Amino acid sequence: MPTGVALRDVREQLFEAAERILLRDGPSGLTSRAVTAEAGCAKGVLHRHFTDFDGFLADLVLDRIARLERQAAELRAAAGTGGVVANLAAALTELFGPVAVAIVALVTFRDELRARLRRTRPTGLPLLTEATAMVADYLAAERALGRISTAADPATLAPTLIGTAHLLFADRTATPPDAAAVHRMVAATLEGVLPR
């Protein structure tokens, strides 16, 4: 007879368990045994729902990317309201929460996971690529509204903002940057394209 707790939504419970392990132990602590132990279920449960552990991890990353779509819609809807710097600083702070930073580390840590993700996402680093598109879309909308210079290049500014923000948040063991630091970084990056 299987041991452990009854699972309501197996995928979600396993994903949440994996995220807790990533936050606590980092990518090297993430194993199928650790995930099922954290979720309180038999090891076979994971393999009944996913082809293998890297398939599970790929689905975990894709789930995180799907969550980013909601944030992208909210940021796009914010175009024309509030301040451009404030909107981006808030979006980047939400984007680079501890779980997302751990997911990026996981993708860079596991070669087989990256290979799986390349099947549907052939370029860039998954999650960061989608985040870059989110910021570029927002900047293009603000440019169309005249809130940033018509000379602004969202395709260059977006990866600059994402890369710099990732560097600010990347150390999972350190205290995340405060709101003022993120605001300063965004303001400095956009300095040449914001109205005076």
Score class of each variant (00 low, 15 high):
4 G>Q: 06
4 G>W: 07
6 A>F: 14
9 D>V: 03
10 V>G: 06
15 F>D: 04
18 A>Q: 12
19 E>N: 12
19 E>S: 10
20 R>T: 12
22 L>A: 12
23 L>P: 08
24 R>C: 11
27 P>K: 04
35 V>Y: 04
37 A>S: 15
37 A>L: 10
43 K>S: 15
44 G>M: 14
44 G>Q: 15
44 G>I: 10
44 G>K: 12
45 V>P: 00
47 H>T: 11
49 H>V: 11
53 F>N: 04
54 D>P: 01
54 D>A: 01
56 F>C: 06
56 F>H: 04
59 D>G: 13
62 L>W: 05
62 L>A: 08
62 L>D: 15
63 D>A: 07
63 D>P: 00
64 R>F: 02
66 A>Y: 06
66 A>N: 11
67 R>L: 15
70 R>Y: 15
73 A>Y: 00
73 A>L: 13
77 A>T: 05
78 A>S: 15
80 G>S: 08
80 G>Q: 10
84 V>C: 14
86 A>F: 10
87 N>A: 14
89 A>Y: 03
90 A>K: 13
93 T>N: 11
95 L>Q: 09
96 F>N: 13
97 G>M: 01
98 P>C: 07
98 P>L: 10
100 A>T: 15
102 A>K: 03
105 A>C: 09
105 A>Y: 06
105 A>E: 15
105 A>T: 05
106 L>T: 03
107 V>H: 00
108 T>D: 12
109 F>Y: 14
116 R>V: 11
116 R>S: 08
118 R>S: 12
118 R>Y: 11
118 R>I: 05
119 R>N: 09
122 P>V: 11
124 G>F: 02
130 E>I: 01
132 T>V: 06
132 T>W: 04
134 M>Y: 12
135 V>H: 14
138 Y>Q: 14
142 E>Q: 07
148 I>N: 07
149 S>N: 05
149 S>L: 05
149 S>C: 01
154 P>V: 08
158 A>C: 03
159 P>L: 02
159 P>Y: 00
159 P>Q: 00
161 L>W: 03
162 I>M: 04
163 G>M: 06
163 G>V: 03
164 T>Y: 04
166 H>C: 04
167 L>M: 08
169 F>L: 00
174 A>L: 00
175 T>P: 10
177 P>G: 02
179 A>T: 08
187 A>F: 00
189 T>M: 12
193 V>P: 01
